[in-house]
Amino acid sequence: MLKRHTLVAATTLLTALVLAGCGSSDGGGADADAPAAGSGVCGEGTPDGLLKEVCDKGTITVSTDPAYPPQSSLDPKTNTYVGFDIDVATEIAHRLGVKIGWETPSWDVITAGGWNDRWQMSVGSMTPTNARQKVLDFTQPYYYTPAVVAVNTDNTTISDVSTDLDGKKIGVCSGCTYEAFLDKTLAINGFTFDFVIDDADIHGYDTDTTALQDLALGDGTRLDAVITSLTTAQGYADAGNPVKIVGDPVFYEPLAVAIDKSAEQDPTSLAEAIDKIVGEMHDDGTLTELSKKWYDGVDLSVSQQ
């Protein structure tokens, strides 16, 4: 079990879902509801370090994915970002007392750290693995999702994920925790994993969605299966695509907000402020409400471990 009010720097937690696309975007609709100057955390006391920089600027820039529903995606009709992660990030910004801006770097760039202050926070369904904790500070998790196996709807040979996937062509996002699970290197302090899949033929993709698109081409055409989050797999299937979920989840992943340790200003103040906000959002039911909004009434803000 995880303690809610503990800032994760080099301890506890679990997995990541992908982010994709490069460059920046000004999509988003937070400015219309921007908090009043001097409100929120920025209106309390005398902030220092990276928190002071964000407060003085009046804007926090957040990395997100323009094609990762229901967590985050760019609505072409409104040119704004929508999704669970978008709402969580926007609420964090509101409680800080600042506006929000967006960047869309690739996942490997985000997880590598060294953001060069291009953005100050990642709300991208990231698992705080031990390796990532070396370069990023993490808050307590804001939600948890099961990692599941998806196959083409024509498949009839894969049902038991502990035996039927050995040696199969499995698609995952490159550099994410699903890949680490398959190559049996996934490590998070305080957690153990049952690596039930042996000798997988791992195929890495820029996003989970791209992997699912290859899976939809046909059973075994390019892939035999994809490992992704329950929310992503179910959303893709519900959109009418020829994939289905099989078996039980292979593991569960707590997902947390990340802040770059190598920011020019000391990031500790911002990390602590955001961690406190996430705890308050748990306690007052905001995360439950947002989860139910985006995940068909299911509360993923509570650990299922």
Rank of each mutant, 00 (worst) to 15 (best):
N130G: 10
I277K: 03
Q120S: 07
I110S: 10
L300A: 11
E91I: 07
L51Y: 00
G247Y: 01
T268W: 00
I60F: 03
R132T: 02
R222L: 13
L270F: 03
A225T: 05
E253C: 14
L186F: 12
H282T: 04
T163Q: 12
C42N: 10
K99Q: 14
L7V: 15
I277T: 11
D296Y: 13
A216W: 03
S72E: 09
N155R: 12
E280S: 13
A37F: 03
H282Y: 04
Y143K: 06
G29A: 08
S122K: 02
D283W: 02
G43M: 09
V149T: 13
G23D: 11
G220D: 03
V161R: 04
L96T: 04
D108E: 15
D56E: 13
P35F: 02
A258V: 04
G240S: 07
L50W: 08
Y144A: 07
K169T: 09
R132V: 14
D183N: 15
D137I: 14
L215E: 06
M281L: 15
Q304Y: 05
Q120M: 07
K57G: 14
I60P: 03
A150V: 12
D214Q: 13
T232S: 11
N116W: 01
E44N: 12
I245W: 01
G204A: 13
T288K: 14
Y205F: 15
T11Q: 14
Y68T: 07
G190T: 13
K52I: 11
K168W: 01
D284G: 08
D219A: 11
N152V: 04
D266S: 06
P242G: 03
T64I: 10
D248T: 15
S24G: 11
T145A: 14
E103P: 00
D248R: 12
D208E: 15
D275L: 05
D266V: 03
T192Y: 09
D85Q: 01
D275N: 15
K77S: 11
L50T: 09
M121C: 08
L255F: 08
A67Q: 14
D117R: 01
T153G: 02
A263Y: 01
V62M: 06
L17M: 11
E53Y: 03
K3D: 15
I92Y: 08
G21N: 10
V257F: 02
P267E: 02
P128F: 04
C176Q: 12
L19C: 13
P47L: 02
T104W: 00
Q304W: 04
Y178S: 14
E179S: 08
V151R: 06
A216Y: 00
L270N: 05
G40C: 03
D299R: 05
Q140M: 12
T232C: 01
Y142G: 08
K3G: 09
D87G: 10
A150W: 09
L136E: 05
G45V: 01
L300W: 09
G218E: 09
S106F: 05
D48S: 15
G83V: 01
E103G: 02
A67P: 00
D160W: 06
D208Q: 12
T286E: 04
T12I: 06
Y68R: 10
G27P: 00
P66Q: 07
S63H: 07
K57N: 09
T64G: 05
V62Q: 03
Q133S: 11
L13E: 09
G21H: 02
A131T: 15
G83A: 08
V41P: 08
D75G: 13
M126N: 13
V302C: 00
P249T: 09
